[in-house]
Design a protein around this nucleic acid. Structure first.
Length: 516
RNA sequence: GCGGGAGUAGCUCAGCUGAUAGAGCAUUAGCCUUCCAAGCUAAGGGUCGCGGGUUUGAAUCCCGUCUCCCGCUCCA
């Protein structure tokens, strides 16, 4: 059933111009999506909500827009180059995937174990007079194994150095490595999985550098820490906030826009005095939760998920999870990243990245608390939370279904539609005149096609909060009817009052007021 | 990568015991003038994912291939 709603949501997103599959006319490109004419408006509004609540509402948080391309060494320093490059092999029977290098290392360890066993046995036999070094050099069984080990180790390191995947597989076959789960030796080829996209910078082949498309935006903040801190004369604690694209060559990327290969992050790195990071971590987790809850999607649909296994750089981590149609899933992560990243960059760049604390009279590397949210996941959350199918009974007793996107009004792609009740008698002209006045302040739509009820429903499906209808009375007294999306109720108001009504109901201030 | 499902109009699908490619909705134009999607008339839109084979003839049968969706492995 929930799956059903998810499918409807995907279809709705396409039908009403929110999200399209990338390169659709060429059969699509896996896990890449485009935002359509309404999607881009909604997405921009989500980004505005985040940016304003970070940068405008916090005196000590500033913005940044760093480039996607960065010096390759940054990814060595951050640990991504090592962590993102694995030769993997699958067992065809158990469907389990292993790191090929780990399997071979296990085989090496097995040989070592054999030799150790011989040594242990001999030790028992000879007692105190046992000379281990001599034994290892002379015992034929140990020597044979040592030779085996040396040969295998050389083959292994050669294969790794030459990045020879076929050789890695051949080693696994020759060593008769079996899958621990299925026990079979039925292996696929070894494949290199590089989770970072790479490209070449520099137009000549010999001068070209391999550079990576960033897999997270955070590093752009870390490497600009000194620039921003010094030019902004910022004192700890302070934060740098950035919205930008990131790229990961995910092995599987599924569930619509929940996990994409090209995605957008909204990250804020908050720099603090060492020792205070866990207090700030607690503060930010509450701040971020309140940001989510202010949208009014129901507090019960959110929860924290504490990380038990922490990443190498973190000393605390928690996710904000939202109840999607396919279950509770992460939309935001809050991490206490310690001084790991800045330390690494200090080491790899050879530049001091420190903060002089005037109170203590000394310099130190700040600690970092990070909040990191996926724009696309947020978008999906907003769509999932807003999508409603309502039963509507009309005056003649007919029951039909109304599909309405109950978007938080500040996020709605279109704020109001103005339509003539009929397309004659000067009503269309009057409607366009009204739009002419309001279009500078709001995204407006005009529609004269089909019956008025049908037009209302079309706007419901887009999440437009207001429909303004021009009728014959309008021409006499300059009043119009304004219809509210959620209640379907209408009221008659003066044309000059429209701007104020829409502004009051759709500006971001009410949202910001709810933030803690 | 493995397993399962699916590719026919913008959308949802029918046609699949081989023989001129269909419906509903949507779109466009005109009529009607009506405050909650369903009035009337007309039009546009498809190399039936792609390639090959069998056949007098293939959306339909056979082989190959690509893509998408779901599950599993991964996710700093």
């Amino acid at each position: 059933m929930a799956d059903d709603i998810f499918k409807k949501l995907i279809a709705h997103s396409k039908e009403y111009g929110f999200v399209f599959q990338s390169s659709e006319i060429y059969d699509g490109l896996g896990a890449v999506y485009d935002y359509g004419q309404n999607g881009v408006e909604l997405k921009n509004n989500i980004k505005k909500y985040w940016r304003d609540s970070m940068v405008k509402l916090h005196e000590n948080v500033v913005g940044l827009d760093s480039a996607i391309f960065m010096h390759p060494t940054i990814w060595k320093a951050s640990g991504h180059v090592d962590a993102f490059n694995d030769p993997l092999i699958d067992n065809k029977d158990s469907k389990k995937r292993y790191r090929a290098d780990v399997l071979i290392e296990d085989a090496l360890a097995k040989i070592e174990a054999k030799m150790d066993k011989e040594v242990t046995k001999a030790k028992k036999r000879f007692g105190d007079s046992f000379d281990e070094a001599q034994f290892r050099e002379t015992n034929p069984r140990v020597l044979a194994n040592q030779e085996k080990w040396n040969a295998l180790h050389k083959r292994f390191s050669d294969a790794l150095n030459n990045n020879d995947l076929n050789e890695l597989k051949q080693i696994i076959i020759d060593q008769e490595v079996a899958c621990p789960v299925s026990g079979s030796k039925n292996w696929t080829d070894v494949r290199q999985f590089n989770l970072m996209f790479s490209t070449e910078m520099g137009s000549t082949a010999e001068g070209a550098n391999t550079i990576y498309l960033r897999p997270e935006t955070a590093q752009g903040i870390f490497v600009n820490y000194l620039n921003v801190q010094k030019t902004g004369r910022l004192k700890l604690p302070f934060g740098i906030a950035q919205i930008g694209k990131a790229f990961r060559n995910e092995i599987v990327a599924r569930q619509f826009i929940f996990r994409m290969r090209e995605f957008e992050q909204m990250e804020m790195q908050f720099f603090v005095k060492p020792g205070t990071e866990l207090d700030w971590f607690d503060k930010w987790r509450e701040t971020r939760m309140s940001w989510h809850r202010a949208l009014g999607f129901g507090d019960e649909n959110y929860r924290f998920h504490e990380h038990e296994k922490l990443a190498h750089y973190a000393n605390a981590a928690v996710d904000v999870e939202y109840k999607f149609p396919f279950g509770f899933k992460e939309v935001e992560g809050i991490h206490s990243r310690t001084d790991f990243d800045l330390n690494q960059h200090q080491e790899f760049s050879g530049k001091k990245i420190q903060y002089f604390d005037p109170e203590l009279g000394k310099s130190y590397v700040p600690y970092v608390v990070e909040t990191s949210i996926g724009v696309d996941r947020m978008f999906l959350q907003v769509m999932a939370a807003s999508y409603c199918e309502e039963e509507v009974t009309s005056s003649n007793g007919k029951v039909d279904t109304r599909v309405v996107l109950k978007l938080p009004t500040p996020l709605a792609p279109i704020k109001l539609a103005v339509m003539p009740l009929v397309k004659k008698d000067g009503l269309p002209e009057k409607a366009r005149e009204i739009i002419g006045d309001l279009k500078f302040d709001f995204n407006c739509a005009y529609d004269e096609k089909d019956s008025i009820g049908k037009r209302y429903r079309r706007m419901d499906a887009l999440g437009t909060p207001f429909c303004v209808t021009v009728d014959h009375q309008t021409l006499e007294d300059n009043t119009v009817t304004i219809r509210h999306r959620d209640t379907m109720e209408q009221e008659r108001v003066a044309i000059e009052a429209l701007g104020g009504i829409v502004e009051n109901a759709t500006n971001f201030k009410a949202l910001y007021a709810k933030l803690k």
